[in-house]
Amino acid sequence: MADLEIRDLTVQVEEKVILKGANLTLNKGEVHALMGPNGSGKSTLANVLMGNPTYQVVKGEVLYKGQDLLAMSPDERARRGLFIAFQYPVSIPGVTMSSFLRTAVSARRGFDKELMPVGEFQKLLKQKLDELRIEPAIVSRYVNEGFSGGEKKRLEILQMAMLEPEIAIMDETDSGLDIDSVKVVADGVNRMLAQAKGNLGILLITHYSRILHFIKPSYVHVMFDGRFVVSGGPDLAEELEQSGYEGIKAQFEVIAAEVQAEGAVRRAGKVFWVAH
């Protein structure tokens, strides 16, 4: 049984179909990179996996450790170890980062009626702040309010470190970061992977291959127009860097023209997912 299994997932937003039958299997201990041009449906997939109510699932299913993920509320998914680092984290005025973190960590760790003891929480928080080189003062500010783009992204990673997920989706965490910040984030993620000892799987959504120099994926997938079109190993990311999305798209179009039936076509170390 796979830890996360996405089958033929079709999703719409306000009557517009964005995701047109996505399939993916992901296990703990694996890092999957999901790449694709803007508007290809990557963020939609991430949001649907976390249960964002804006997106409606039209067809398909998602199994998380064998259970129906789509039937769970977002908080239940989080408590069971699913995590998303948002591309655009919203701000919540008046709610301090520290009280929010303490509530969230308590929920994840199964404190039901009461919150995690302050001392224990503070210790954990300090450790993670140090590891990610985040200024401690930031946690007394309101959630994401007035944060710079870089601060928001780093705080998403802090939350990931605090919540210790089993499957984490990182939605363009690298976009808008300068190279030093990308490195700090990547170091943090690599540390989490090492500490988790095979108990953390990551779906790393990115537009550029830059972050993949720092976080090495085991698999790379490419999406166009709401569908997975190509899957491969780490080489695929490098190929993309060379030839761009247009290059891959051209290859895919040639193959799709040749192959009549739908399905997986293995060529040049890559799997092309042909749909007609």
């Binding site: 976390m50 948002f86 919540i92 509530t103 969230a104 929920a107 994840r108």
Partner: peptide, 9 residues
């Protein structure tokens, strides 16, 4: 959704 995605009911 943001808060719930962190496990808060």
């Amino acid at each position: 959704f943001y808060l719930m995605s962190r496990g808060i009911k």
